[in-house]
């Protein structure tokens, strides 16, 4: 299989940063066409930075990125952006159009595609994500999951070769998350799309063919989901989601509260919190 994404010795530092520390240090990896790769890691580990480097939203200090045979440079950046569709975390902040159809058409308008073709592609894309009934709706009247599906329809209409999901499901409720994941699986089945998903969600990571673990700006581990999941509790260290009560416990502990060491369910945690407050 051909390599559609190839990253070599990528180093990146945020320009507004005053230290010399790199946000990404010597990152190299490649992704084969049609593969689904998940990138996991803590908040601030550099995974979103990595994604933004791939389509030139951020420019690396050094290193080379090759997308579908084209080396990323100032001259090729717009060609490459056409090949990469990117869905971001916040459903509201990436909805450009005033209605669903307008938003799906946005990338097409940017490419100067004739109107007749646009009309057809927008309808097809909306049908594919099962949002045709909402074509003339305003974003304010959609759920988070529906907005992300519209974002995906925008990608389908623009026909990229690579889809990057930058924590695209992290702000959704479990239902919305399942909807979006199902849509991505469907998209993957319909075409030989390459998917790169940056995620904390264990289900999303499990859908991938391969998982890359990023820590502190470096690629620390790589393997199939099964291999990575064998680590058990250490997954948390890699930035995959801890259950909510565990996160709350960790946060309370940082504030100097003594927390029970046994595992508590959400309900158990709530009961324990009530006790704690009433004893004060």
């Amino acid at each position: 299989m051909s390599q559609i994404i190839n990253v070599e010795h990528l180093n990146y530092r945020y320009p507004q940063q005053d230290t010399d520390a790199l946000t990404l240090t010597d990152v190299s990896f490649s992704v084969a066409a049609g593969e689904w790769v998940a990138i996991v890691g803590h908040n601030g580990s550099g995974k979103s930075t990595l994604a933004k480097n791939l389509n030139g939203l951020l420019a690396p200090v050094s290193g080379q990125i090759t997308i579908d045979g084209q080396v990323l440079s100032e001259d090729t950046v717009w060609d490459i952006r056409r090949k990469i569709g990117m869905v971001f975390q916040n459903p509201d902040n990436q909805f450009v159009g005033a209605t669903v159809a307008d938003d799906v058409a946005f990338s097409l308008e940017n490419q100067g595609i004739p109107r007749e073709t646009m009309l057809k592609r927008v309808d097809e894309a909306l049908a594919q994500v099962d949002m045709s009934a909402f074509k003339t709706r305003e974003p304010a009247r959609l759920s988070g999951g529906q907005k992300q599906r519209v974002a995906l329809a925008g990608m389908i209409a623009a026909r990229p070769k690579i889809l990057i999901l930058d924590e695209a499901t992290s702000m959704l409720d479990p239902e919305g998350r399942a909807e979006v994941l199902a849509t991505i699986r469907q998209m993957k089945a319909d075409s030989d799309l390459t998917v790169l998903s940056i995620t904390h969600d264990i289900d999303e990571a499990a859908s991938a063919n391969r998982v890359l673990v990023v820590n502190d700006g470096q690629l620390v581990e790589e393997g199939t989901p099964a291999e990575i999941f064998e680590h058990g509790p250490a997954l948390i260290k890699m930035g995959l989601d801890m259950p909510y009560p565990e996160r709350l416990k960790a946060a309370l502990k940082r504030q100097g509260v003594t927390v029970p060491t046994t595992y508590l369910t959400e309900k158990g945690m709530a009961d324990w919190l009530w006790q704690l407050i009433s004893n004060k």
Partner: peptide, 22 residues
């Protein structure tokens, strides 16, 4: 965020864009 998303979707200013709504 919106500016980033627009750029990622290939927005390069008004010239050369086609229109969906007429």
């Amino acid at each position: 965020d919106l500016a980033t998303a627009m750029e990622a979707r290939g927005y390069q200013g008004g010239e050369g864009r086609s229109k969906y709504r007429i």
